[in-house]
Nucleic acid binder design. Sequence first.
DNA 1: TTGTAGGCGTTATCAT
DNA 2: ATGATAACGCCTACAA
Lengths: 331, 331
Amino acid sequence: MVTIRDVAKRAGVAVSTVSKVINNYPSVSEDTIARVNEAIEELHFIPNSVAASLSSKQSGRVAVLTDPDGQTLASSEIMMQYIMGAVKAGNEARLDIVPLFFSMFAGMNVEEIEHRLEAQNIRSIIVCGLDRDMKALTELIEREKFKSVVVDMPMESENTSNIGVDHAQAQKDILRKTITENTGPSDSVLYISGRTNSFVTEERIRGAMELSEELGFELTVMNGAFSEKTAREITFKYGRDKDIIACGSDLMAIGAMKALTDMNVFHPVCGFDGITLMGYAGKNMTTVRQDFGFIGEEALRECMRLMGGEKGRSIRVPYDLVQVRYEDVLN
Amino acid sequence: MVTIRDVAKRAGVAVSTVSKVINNYPSVSEDTIARVNEAIEELHFIPNSVAASLSSKQSGRVAVLTDPDGQTLASSEIMMQYIMGAVKAGNEARLDIVPLFFSMFAGMNVEEIEHRLEAQNIRSIIVCGLDRDMKALTELIEREKFKSVVVDMPMESENTSNIGVDHAQAQKDILRKTITENTGPSDSVLYISGRTNSFVTEERIRGAMELSEELGFELTVMNGAFSEKTAREITFKYGRDKDIIACGSDLMAIGAMKALTDMNVFHPVCGFDGITLMGYAGKNMTTVRQDFGFIGEEALRECMRLMGGEKGRSIRVPYDLVQVRYEDVLN
DNA sequence: TTGTAGGCGTTATCAT
DNA sequence: ATGATAACGCCTACAA
């Protein structure tokens, strides 16, 4: 393995000088920078991120916390994209990314979790899929021992940023689109919402309600708990004589659509997330496509910003309104 | 952060002794072991795996190499399970798992990849989804600088193990089951195979051919290249008057089944892998279910074995023959 | 601007 | 059986 020492020898400077060049310290002459970089090139030197994270308080490792245990196809696809995005961006920044899953912390209190993370030299975390019931994880973030970036939860502080699309606005947009594109009489909408302990659910419901007031249609909100099965049942019960069914997730939209098909009636159904599975639902459905990979990348960059000493903030990312057909996902 | 030094002080021994206790060295008295463990408990000490991997040649980090870029839903579900399995087992063994994706190494030669891995203190790799066209990665494994565990490729050497189900046998089993359970005249089977550069494809074809000889049915093998779309096209062309369609992957099975449905004919279709998506295909289909999470776990344990100095070997893991219905995947 | 030296938390090699 | 102590590769005051 070629180390910083080899580079130093090759360039005829001290190891500390090489380190300074690597980390873009201001006080190095152009001349030595050039010489050192030359040596780095020649030796194909790559800094050891493990050693760096051991030695420095600055350049720590970043954990990506996800919960794909939800077992649904949707969550595994989404979580995978978060992770891939973070790993990709981390790779470019030569930052170590550690994937962790909620299930590892089951039954632990905050201190235990903190110890576990510290023992891995983790200084920043990206949390995806957090909801209000997860007390330990929430507290972990609030203690601010780690720089945290939370996806889809409105947490913000000195050391905490949040990131995600504007769920209320997106819900409004997709519902409006679904209504206007289906010219029939749209005066009753069934909204099947996600779990109530989730921030995105509140926001999406709010969006739907605002639009209902704006356009003056009747809105019925039912709790589908992010469950395809529940959405299916709700649709059987209440879906028949609604004009449109809007769902707080794609999975529920699929459940609703399948129920309608089974009842042999048709109403437009829209979902939320833009997962591939939508293409297999049998009908064309509209949805809000989030770019989870991009969110993962951005989250990682935000971690770096926080580790650089900057304050937490809120980041909104763009989304698309799309129609997913089988042809689109086929490859 | 509580370190090994704190524990040593607390237990009244030297740090080296604590290290020995942690790593189960033989030459420590029962008495001190007890005292040290007590101190560890009291202080909630968790060994820092990063520091360990820096210091030790033994306990390095393990990379899990996957390629979810294939973009299909199936691969993201499968790769996620491999990763989760490895992370789970690694967590229990206090081993650092780092997820890496094939795309990161695009265009690199073996040396470059080696440098990248060395620079991350990686001493062992688990490779999932490798095929014969990936020269650099294959060479990386063959050079044996790293202890490697390859999923579904018949590589074996001093420092290389392979793991996976018996694909030929499994293909035989699922095809036999599909034939016997459908009592109609099964004397012609269309087999849509995966990509030809893949070991599992060869094996599965071999299994199908062996059964064809054994039972005396006519077998037509076509290359579906693991593509749902291609399988669909092949089925349109040749599927109508076959008795059974067997596919080398679930995705292709779905493509085939959808094509049959579109043609308004029915033939039994069987797939391979056992992914959740099968539940959304609209019909009941049989398939070979692999436990990817378990394979990930076992692969990690095999890495530990190799790092412990033992020789590479071949590991076969069990599989199930299942029928996936919408009700099964609904939750 | 550059170099020296101590430390990050652990393991491993020797002595004892 | 136990304990000093030198690595491991890098960062960072502080000194020159």
